[in-house]
Measured scan of single mutants.
Amino acid sequence: MSRVPSPPPPAEMSSGPVAESWCYTQIKVVKFSYMWTINNFSFCREEMGEVIKSSTFSSGANDKLKWCLRVNPKGLDEESKDYLSLYLLLVSCPKSEVRAKFKFSILNAKGEETKAMESQRAYRFVQGKDWGFKKFIRRDFLLDEANGLLPDDKLTLFCEVSVVQDSVNISGQNTMNMVKVPECRLADELGGLWENSRFTDCCLCVAGQEFQAHKAILAARSPVFSAMFEHEMEESKKNRVEINDVEPEVFKEMMCFIYTGKAPNLDKMADDLLAAADKYALERLKVMCEDALCSNLSVENAAEILILADLHSADQLKTQAVDFINYHASDVLETSGWKSMVVSHPHLVAEAYRSLASAQCPFLGPPRKRLKQS
């Protein structure tokens, strides 16, 4: 649940008159999402009104509101027999009622949201009550392989729920002597030191190019640089560091992050930047690179990204790559990247197969709970 924001200063709310007192009302909304995959969808019983329910879910471990999704594969009634019906059901509720908006969509073979439908307002739910769409999607369109909505005969539904909580009022009075504290510009100011090479005390040599930097900042941000300058190493004695395995453009992006906490060109060089972040123990930059690479996972590059993640101990990226390969196994196994990995990294192939087997055979063990970014 997000923290209630402070109200904007009255002088910034309007260029008009300023009242002596004010009130700011925040209506709290808890948002969460749920993904439900139905394997072997074409084998569902086709009687009209037949119901399939998901397991229950909530916004978190401490949330007492429990929900589930309900599907009628062949419609709810005679009117909707040519459609799939989809509903959000409130299973248990400690209150007399709650209000919530919802959005349903289908994830296609690429994991993209399609055929989205959402409620136009927050509906009133009581325990045992459901709301949804009797005519969510035509069955003939859903079952047509050309539309790519049932890869490997799996129907994957994605649901986003927004639950309306209580409202909170914050009130106060205006004073004539309003003090406005300026925003912190530390990142910009440190970035200026790097860009202008002011007050530098060490030189970093990268592929024949020299960059002036500040030992204190490098040591504070990177345990690797800290070790170089702290001990009686040649880098500490000469205040000069030779860097041979990072390209200059990648190095500059890494230094921008060290000084400012930002990497504006990360998406263009996420793979190389991940390697640099791993070498210099820049954990936050490493996770930022993992996130960017996750966003660009595809059938063509899944094997290469899995190898990269394994090489640099990028655990979150590795998990996402394995899950992606499992979901698109029939396509990924035909790529040149996968065939190369079979020869060069057989242990990763074995890991992917083990994960695929456990996903398809849940009876082999208890269900695993899916539970950071600093």
Rank of each mutant, 00 (worst) to 15 (best):
K262H: 02
G132Y: 00
Q120A: 13
S298V: 12
R121Q: 07
G365W: 12
I325E: 00
L293Y: 11
S2Q: 07
T335Q: 15
D291R: 03
V164Q: 07
Y327D: 09
K135V: 12
C68R: 07
T260C: 05
E112C: 11
D152M: 07
R99H: 08
S2F: 13
V343H: 11
S2D: 05
W194N: 06
E290D: 12
P17K: 15
L190Y: 07
S54C: 02
P10S: 11
L65D: 12
G16Q: 14
V30H: 04
T335F: 00
L297R: 00
E145M: 03
E47Y: 03
S171A: 02
M13L: 07
I27S: 04
S6N: 04
D323K: 08
N39P: 05
E334Q: 07
C184Y: 05
W338S: 00
D310Y: 05
L69K: 03
T200D: 15
P367Y: 04
G191V: 03
W194I: 11
E97D: 13
Y327P: 02
G191I: 10
F199Q: 15
F32T: 09
L274C: 01
C68L: 05
C68Q: 05
K369E: 04
Y327Q: 06
R370G: 03
G16M: 02
P367W: 03
K339I: 11
C44H: 03
L306E: 00
V322Q: 13
D152T: 00
I27E: 13
K262Q: 02
M35W: 14
I325Y: 01
H347E: 11
A216Q: 05
T37D: 10
K135Y: 09
S336Y: 08
G261E: 03
Y327K: 05
D77A: 05
S14D: 13
Q373C: 15
R121M: 09
D152S: 06
V29H: 14
L297A: 01
S105N: 11
N169D: 02
D245G: 03
T37H: 06
S162L: 01
D77F: 12
M117E: 05
S340Q: 13
C202F: 08
A19M: 07
V179H: 07
K28L: 11
K64F: 12
F104D: 00
D140G: 06
S42Y: 04
V181S: 06
A122P: 05
D310T: 09
D323L: 13
R124T: 05
L89D: 14
S222T: 15
K238N: 06
K180T: 03
Q26E: 05
I305T: 04
R70G: 11
S295I: 10
A263M: 06
A207R: 14
S197L: 13
W194T: 06
L142I: 11
S236G: 01
M48Y: 11
M117D: 12
K154T: 12
T335P: 00
F257W: 08
C159G: 08
G111N: 11
A100L: 04
A321N: 03
R354P: 03
A303S: 04
S162V: 05
S171V: 04
D267G: 02
K180N: 07
E234G: 10
D130M: 09
N174W: 03
V299K: 09
A309I: 00
K103G: 13
A303F: 09
P223S: 14
C93I: 12
F251D: 00
S80R: 04
K74M: 14
K286H: 06
K252L: 05
A227V: 14
R139A: 05
L157Y: 08
L308K: 03
D130Q: 12
N265D: 08
K115R: 11
T200M: 10
R139V: 11
Y83G: 13
S96P: 11
Q212C: 15
S92N: 09
N301S: 03
E235H: 06
M341P: 00
L193E: 10
H231Y: 08
N62K: 08
D130R: 12
K372W: 12
K180W: 06
L150C: 00
D278N: 06
L143D: 07
C93Y: 06
S42N: 01
S295H: 06
L69D: 00
L317K: 00
P5H: 01
F324C: 07
V322C: 10
M48Q: 02
K115H: 13
W131D: 00
R139E: 11
P17H: 09
D315T: 12
F199S: 15
V168T: 05
I38G: 00
H328Q: 01
S59D: 12
Y87M: 09
V161G: 05
